[in-house]
């Protein structure tokens, strides 16, 4: 486990009080319940927070990169302006897979051409992670892709200890949040030894892919492996895997007029490289015209093309796509088929 020494400890009661205090200045999003489902959503009171993690359908990337987002506004007479919206936000209780996802999202949107809509949100957001002590369900495979521990993407990280949490501080923003909102006591530094031992025991024999670092090479060598067609021929091209993925960041852009036709806006929306027209051009040519090609592209983004750029597997093993897929397609199984573990 790669956790750093915690600096503070906090009781659960003080943590909840701190969140309550923060609600005066921030919108707080946390794992919460709606009917019988858990999801990341804006809460009105800390009592709504669910601490016992269960996998959510959508990842918390939606708070940095919303499903629909207006990026321009214009009027019929041609006045045009960029629309960049962000609110002070606390993202509470984000788990290691999604924190590693945030890192990737950040590099994608912030590097080279700094995306103003994304960066405005990052600037105003405090991310508080909670470490996972156990594997959340049978579909999660964070441990296979080196993502069971968060390597970044958070301001504060909480580790469960008896009667509360030990707090690791990653950024100044995190430090300021503690001083303004949280009542803590100084940590001894050894608080997380026992929770780390618990985590190690729970994850047991689950180890990363033997060839994790060599995945880009393996995928490059296996462009024409039979697994692509075996899995791809079942794909329904629905794009669900992408809607739920914490590290898919492709988008479409479209214009919409208001009903009065006096004002319009340009909206970006999540898009999916698994849907048929994603790579089609006006002339009708589609550069990935079969589901097999599209699956090859998506999985190679995770383990080859973008893995080289981000220096980590871009699939964080959260298991959301596996749960969402109606055709039972799994990135883990594809990686294994091309020799990730042999």
């Amino acid at each position: 486990m790669s956790a750093q020494t915690p600096e503070f400890v906090i009781t659960k009661k003080d943590l909840l009080q701190g969140l309550d205090k923060a609600l005066a200045d921030y919108q707080v999003a946390a794992l919460t319940k709606k009917d019988d489902r858990v999801l990341y959503d804006i809460i009105k009171s800390p009592t709504e927070v669910v601490f016992d993690y269960q996998p959510t359908v959508l990842s918390p990337k939606k708070f940095f990169f919303p499903q629909d987002e207006t990026i321009l506004e214009y009027t019929a007479d041609g006045k045009i302006s960029a629309k960049i919206e962000a609110k002070p936000t606390v993202l509470f209780g984000i788990r290691p897979c999604d924190l590693n996802g945030f890192k990737i999202l950040h590099e994608a949107f912030a590097d080279d051409h700094g995306d103003p809509n994304y960066l405005a949100k990052v600037e105003q957001t405090v991310v508080i992670g909670i470490d996972c002590e156990k594997i959340c369900d049978k579909d999660a495979f964070c441990f296979k892709v080196g993502s069971q521990d968060a390597t970044g993407g958070f301001d504060l990280m909480l580790y469960e200890i008896a009667d509360g949490y030990a707090i690791e501080i990653a950024t100044d923003k995190g430090s300021q949040f503690i001083s303004k909102y949280l009542t803590t006591s100084k940590a001894n530094g050894d608080e997380i030894t026992s929770c780390q031992a618990k985590k190690a025991a729970n994850f047991g024999q689950e180890k990363p892919f033997k060839n994790l670092a060599k995945l880009p090479e393996l995928f490059e060598q296996n462009k024409h492996h039979a697994v692509w067609d075996q899995e791809g021929s079942r794909c329904l091209s629905c794009g669900s895997c992408i809607m739920v993925c914490p590290t898919c960041y492709c988008f479409d852009v479209g214009d919409e007029w208001q009903l009065n036709l006096k004002k319009g806006e340009r909206v970006r929306k999540w898009d999916a490289c698994m849907v048929t027209p994603f790579a089609a051009v006006g002339s009708g040519e589609n550069f990935r015209h079969t589901a097999t090609y599209r699956l090859h592209h998506r999985i190679n983004r995770k383990f080859n093309f973008l893995m080289k750029k981000h220096n980590q597997a871009v699939c964080v093993g959260c298991g959301r796509c596996v749960r969402a897929c109606l055709a039972d397609i799994s990135p883990k199984r594809i990686a294994e088929a091309i020799g990730a573990d042999s």
Binding site: G114, D115, L119
Partner: peptide, 20 residues
């Protein structure tokens, strides 16, 4: 070491077009 979410330079005009 932890990777921080460093605030890189934002380009406020990235998606803002100009007139022709």
């Amino acid at each position: 070491m932890r990777t921080k979410l460093n605030l890189r330079e934002s380009d406020p005009k990235l998606y803002l077009p100009e007139r022709a």
